[in-house]
Amino acid sequence: MKNSILSILAIACAMLGSVQTVSAAGDVAKPKQMDWSFSGPFGTYDKAALQRGFLVFKSVCASCHSLDKIAFRNLEALGYEEAQIKTLAAEYTVTDGPNDEGEMFDRPARPSDYFPNPYPNKAAAKYANNGAYPPDLSLMTKARKDGANYVYSLLTGYKDAPEHVHLMNGQYYNPYMAGGVIAMPAPLSDGQVGYEDGTATTVDQYAKDVVHFLNWAAEPELEARKRMGVKVLIFLSIFALVMYGVKRKIWHDVH
């Protein structure tokens, strides 16, 4: 009894007295809703889009962002041949060792190697980027709410800052970023990456393709998962119908 009086008092006090600030992070723009080929129960990746997205990642994102969880061998899923992957990997240099003499040495990357990090460590990455750490992109579309749409909206959503937002040096305005302020300058511009298949070389197209690629990087199992899911659900539905029949037959005399 005493407790409830106290709590009522406390509620009343809270109602009258407190001045609470509505959090500034509340005003984030809702991501644009795109139609991805990989969404929905029968969704699959578009290999051409994956390859284009990889190209964008390789020539733009990879200069600051790592992709720790992906090895060159994984790129087979994008439709590349083994030989192509070998050539592709060889473009990169990785440090290996120690050799028989105890020395570390550089060698061209092999398909079994993982994507090299553009920076030797986190401190170097921060130092090179105005104190902001470019996050690893392997899980980006899973690590944000509505991930694929979010990354697409972010990449295409750069704007001039509205009057009340004050940007410091090295800060940019993007309404899709929590708080509106982002340390990454708009990374894409029209015509920046050459496509061989005649697809439009626009920011919008780049963003779509690279999101496609990043979603694959985050969920490489997606196609296998959904394919298996359809089979499992068909099997279970039939099983359920059979069991319903069995149950009805057994219970027939009881009801």
Partner: peptide
Amino acid sequence: YYTMKDTFGLIVFVIIYAAFVFF
């Protein structure tokens, strides 16, 4: 009676569960 009724109910539950796991 209840082994069969439970199995039926379980399968229906697992259908919803599987929908989450796979999709």
